[in-house]
């Protein structure tokens, strides 16, 4: 188990990191960025997979199964739409 204070440090440092890397994003990328960060929390899939793997009772398996479906949907859908949006951003130089 991660020690409580260690977790708090991770939490604090990750929070600052999140704010810092967003701070430099131009407005033109805000929508893809919201979508991209939406994709990143699709990592929840990993937690749901582990929960399902450890599930024993029918109820726990059902809940874990739903968790995996939803997490996988978050990751896959988030990736596809973000990638589609970013693919379209081109400068005038790229076109010539």
């Amino acid at each position: 188990m991660i020690d409580g204070f260690l977790a708090l440090y991770i939490f604090m440092l990750a929070a600052f990191t999140g704010k810092e890397i967003i701070g430099r994003v131009p407005v033109i990328l805000h929508t893809p960025l919201m979508s991209g960060s939406n994709f990143v929390h699709g990592i929840v899939l990993v937690g749901a997979m582990i929960a399902l793997a450890h599930a024993e009772s029918t109820l726990a398996i059902t809940i874990g199964f739903i968790g995996v479906i939803l997490g996988a949907g978050n990751a896959a859908g988030g990736y596809v739409v973000t990638e589609r949006m970013l693919e379209m951003f081109k400068s005038s130089k790229d076109k010539k």
Binding site: I10, F16, G18, H30
Partner: peptide, 28 residues
Amino acid sequence: AVAFEGYVMNIPALIIAGTVVGAAGTFL
């Protein structure tokens, strides 16, 4: 939510990714 459940499940990757998104999303 992902970050908190990451703590419960003991997976630092969930804590980090979830918190980064939480902070970035709040700022946005």
